[in-house]
Simulated scan of single mutants.
Amino acid sequence: MTLKRYIDRVYLMHKNDKNSETKPNTIQADDLVLIVYDTKRRWLVNLKKNDEFHTNKGIINCQELIGKEYGIKVESSLGERFLILKPSIRDLSLKVKRCTQVIYPKDASMIIYYTGISSGYRVVEAGVGSGALTVSLAHYVKPNGKIYGYEVSERQYKVAKENIVKYNLEEMVDLKLKDINEDIEVRDVDVVILDLADPWNTIPHISERNILKNGGYLATFSPTTSQVEKTLESLKTSGFYYIKTMELLCRTWQPYYGKFRPYTRMVGHTGFLTFAVRISDI
């Protein structure tokens, strides 16, 4: 069954549901919601009272969504049916406003998994870019953690700031237009993430200034092998151990009975991830 047919089918099941009781899964006036027409047409929308969302398949009255449960099916002004979902962290990350290449979910998820980032963690991210990874990190460290983001490009800083505000993450993210190689104020954080053109020049500062705590993880993202080689040498001479470099490839398959096979396109090489632990007393 295609997604479009599924939406049509469940819509008929819920069409006459008049239950308006407030529940934890209820859509609120300022929520970010994912509006889905099919597998290719998906929009992340910030609801505001009396707003309308316009598509070539008709207009959706956002006011009518407020108070309903996520997972409902609605009908546009042209009679087309849409699915209303609560966006996942992946959705939020991929839907950020972009001004540069972003770290994709396959790499972001490995960074979070490998470094153990969780609630309460303090994380330094240098090379924020558009803020796609920042958005993911902020959701994992909340409510009491903090992301300290550094970006040297004013244009990218403004875009990242806009995304952080759009996703209501200001309390979790302290974003600065600053070079991490300058004397930044944070010390003894749990994880440092470097998405820089020359991370090998920053790694010594991470150790010398105790930006990363003893036993904390450092992660770097680099597109080329020459960058990785220089990074590895810098790690080995700066008090880092348990070094590992990996590349992740992601291939999705067509989920259809009788033609279950890989899609012809895939997310191939995006970059190399390098991880290391700071051990200061060896």
Rank of each mutant, 00 (worst) to 15 (best):
K4N: 08
K4W: 10
V10R: 13
M13A: 09
H14A: 14
K15D: 05
N16L: 15
K18E: 08
K23Y: 04
P24H: 11
P24W: 03
N25A: 03
L32T: 04
L34G: 07
L34T: 07
I35R: 05
V36I: 15
V36A: 06
W43T: 03
L44S: 06
L47C: 09
T55H: 09
Q63A: 14
Q63T: 13
I66G: 04
K68N: 14
E69R: 12
K73E: 12
K73H: 11
S77C: 05
L78F: 10
G79D: 08
P87K: 02
P87F: 00
R90Y: 09
I103F: 00
P105A: 11
D107T: 02
S109Q: 08
I111F: 02
I111W: 02
Y114E: 10
S119A: 13
R122S: 11
V123N: 04
V123M: 05
V123P: 04
E125P: 00
V128W: 05
V128Y: 04
G129I: 01
G131F: 00
T134R: 01
V135L: 02
S136T: 12
L137I: 05
Y140M: 12
P143K: 01
N144A: 15
Y148G: 01
G149K: 01
S153Q: 11
R155H: 15
Q156T: 03
K161F: 07
I164G: 01
K166W: 04
K166S: 08
L177Y: 12
D179W: 02
I180Y: 01
D183I: 06
V186E: 12
V191F: 06
V192M: 02
V192R: 03
I193E: 05
A197N: 11
I203P: 03
I203S: 09
I206A: 04
G215E: 06
G216D: 01
G216K: 10
Y217S: 11
S222R: 13
P223Y: 12
T224C: 12
T225Y: 07
S226M: 14
S226D: 12
Q227L: 11
Q227G: 14
E229V: 15
K230Q: 13
T231L: 14
T231S: 12
E233K: 15
T237M: 12
G239H: 11
Y242H: 08
I243H: 12
I243K: 05
L248T: 11
R251N: 14
Q254G: 02
Y257S: 07
G258S: 00
P262Y: 09
T270N: 06
L273C: 03
F275Q: 05
A276F: 04
V277M: 13
